[in-house]
Design a protein around this nucleic acid. Structure first.
Lengths: 135, 135
DNA sequence: CTTGACTCTGTACTTAGGTACAAGGTTTAT
DNA sequence: ATAAACCTTGTACCTAAGTACAGAGTCAAG
């Protein structure tokens, strides 16, 4: 398998070149070997690694958390249960976010139902509620 | 009613002093009158205004959007319906966020169910899924 | 009348996750 | 052999919503 330049890697993994160098600085991808000229040389592994990062991001993990997942994997003392624990925490966090959003939505719906949609803006029950609603 | 210094306003409205000056820069609160010394002089109105901002923030509006709401209110051509429209857009945005979070949660739950919680981290189905899961 | 608490402006820093140069060196295709 | 396209480093910039000074001026209590 041929090695990849940073540009080829970027294209394959569908990320920006600068993002790759940023991930390298953050320690999310290993420092690659270099050619004589200093050009970075990547293997296919790094494509996989970047895909890992992208998927974990989609699941709501921050780069910091992804770094933790990656180091969990390297640590031979890590069990599958350690990973599961992170996932469970993340699920709970997601649930909390959903709860907050639902509360926001309920309030907004209540407000819009009170609003007849006509009449001057100054008397809009939505704006009035924002002014004076307690608790 | 006595006028308030910026510090007293901060205490009453329960925000940081710097936040007040920041809101002033952003045009979210009107520029207050000043004493001879240059000290800002606020009225009770500004407490109300800051509470408006805080509540709107809780409902998921950004400061930029709050600024729009506030200027809607000032514009005599604005109808209640204009405000309702913003609220409806925000409701739709919240619903979209909830959908994304639910999708994330479902995927995570599926993964954790496959994970027996024992065994080495390297063979964890969660990590494997992040490596190789397609689409 | 001094001391401590407050306020002023302006600027820089923060977090997160990047993106965008500039100035120079390398590779590749013609 | 030369031009286009690529790569290097380092630094600065971006959004959002603030927070944290520094250095100077002001106010209130004792």
């Amino acid at each position: 398998m041929e090695s990849l330049t940073v540009g080829q890697l970027a294209k394959k993994a569908e990320v920006n070149i600068e993002t790759i160098r940023y991930y390298e600085r953050r320690g999310l991808i290993p420092k690659p070997s270099r050619r004589e000229s200093g050009y970075r040389q990547y293997t296919q592994d790094t494509v996989t690694r970047i895909q890992f990062i992208k998927r974990a991001k989609e699941l709501g993990f921050s780069l910091r958390e992804i770094l933790e997942l990656l180091s969990l994997r390297l640590d031979p003392g890590t069990t599958c249960g350690d990973v599961k624990k992170r996932a469970d925490i993340k699920i709970a966090e997601i649930e909390e976010k959903i709860r907050i959003l639902r509360r926001m939505k309920r309030t907004l719906i209540t407000l819009t139902m009170e609003c007849k949609g006509s009449g001057p803006g100054r008397e809009c029950p939505i704006l009035e509620a924002l002014d004076s609603e307690k608790e």
